[in-house]
Design a protein around this nucleic acid. Structure first.
Lengths: 221, 221
DNA sequence: TGTACATCAGTGAACGCGCGTTCACTGATGTAC
DNA sequence: TGTACATCAGTGAACGCGCGTTCACTGATGTAC
């Protein structure tokens, strides 16, 4: 009987959770997103992100998830939102560390790919998980997370425009259009490396640099 | 009782299957791959490709799948093999339809993307489904399907080399290396369009053409 | 020509699993009177 | 100051589902004698 309860409700490695104090029930929401992120960090496969797995990891009953999310898709959307934020901050950090606009652009692109390679589960939930239900049913949430994606893209556009303003890149082509070429190419590199790890891939960073330089028309310093 | 049998074993839209004649049991293998392809063609989501779904679609008992495949992963590998072949033929057809090596290269790339956009389930099973079990356990099968992927890549390399030989592309950079840039970029375009259909994507073909021209250094005719 | 037997192409019931979701509930803590 | 009540943060059992896989089997067709 005790093993049954263990299996059903508790993460055997974690201690028994004590309930939050009155008025602090909202903390569980954060803990659930934490737990989901941990699962994604370990699994590489977003399909392992189930309501029951998250509840197990957080040390609560499966039903308690419904105190904060109407269904499992809303939980997944909250997780995606968090990781969109983290991706954006990782890119911004790498970008700001470079003075030259061209090098900053490339550094941001490398940060994007590095995030994907280092956090496959998190990256996949952002760009490889089809959650059509969400897109159809919960327009508010979809707007939120797609605006975070837009933020990432906007930053890329701005960084290409900055190269144009410094004369490093021709102003003949539209920065927004070129940014799309770059984004899709970066995604392709991440996605294929994650999904075909046994392929004999050459080193990632030179590949990123070549792709970005050629796509935006940025020549060696 | 009769509804139970229906649900368990039969596709209600298809007639009752009659068994293959003696010595022709191997036909079922083809029918299973057919059924699996149909499911993928309709679903967009490779997770719906389950052993039981395939059996239902083929009009046989779930257990009969084991007459031809040791497990569900071998079935998936057979499906992938077939669609690698179809992708390769689609590319070759488009390629051969153009005389100019530069236009042929671009036509092949467009065919690659078109295949992915038109057959999301089939494309995903080739490049977005992580089947680590297969890669680890069944080396022979992995070799097969990865050699089909290699065929596609080899064709791309050859078509870039042909551009070099005709002086359309500089011979300064390695064709194999550039081919990788092109392949990953094409995959990124397909993957993102499939996974984020609500994003306001610009028309696909100009985007492919720009990407390929810039990556290989092929200028407008 | 008749019959026993082997082979072949499948079947059907059952198993244990994890899943999302529902429902009625529990028990501690604060608040109104 | 004591007590009834409301609120809050969660629980536990149960549901029906589809899944992959196992096991023993069935029934038609060919073959050896």
């Amino acid at each position: 009987v005790s093993t049954l309860r263990q299996e059903a409700n508790h993460n055997p490695t974690a201690g028994r959770r004590q309930r939050n104090p009155r008025g602090q029930g909202g903390r569980l929401r954060t803990e659930l997103v934490d737990a989901a992120s941990q699962i994604l960090a370990e699994s590489h496969d977003p399909n392992e992100l189930s309501l029951r797995a998250v509840a197990r990891r957080a040390g609560i009953a499966a039903t308690s998830v419904y105190l904060h999310f109407n269904n499992v898709d809303e939980l997944a959307a909250a997780v995606a939102e968090r990781h969109f934020g983290e991706l954006g901050r990782a890119i911004a950090r790498a970008y700001r560390a470079q003075d030259d606009p061209g090098l900053a652009l490339i550094a941001g692109c490398k940060a994007y790919c590095r995030f994907g390679i280092r956090h496959p589960g998190h990256y996949r939930i952002l760009f490889e998980v089809g959650r059509p239900d969400l897109a159809h049913r919960r327009q508010d949430i979809q707007r939120l997370s797609s605006s975070s994606a837009q933020d990432v893209l906007q930053a890329l556009i701005a960084s290409i425009e900055r190269c144009q303003q410094h004369g490093l890149v021709s102003s003949a082509s539209d920065a927004a259009q070129v940014a799309l070429l770059v984004w899709t190419a970066l995604h392709g590199m991440v996605s294929l490396r994650l999904n075909r790890p046994s392929f004999p891939w050459p080193p990632l960073e030179p590949m990123i640099e070549q792709t970005v330089r050629r796509l935006v028309g940025l020549h060696e310093a």
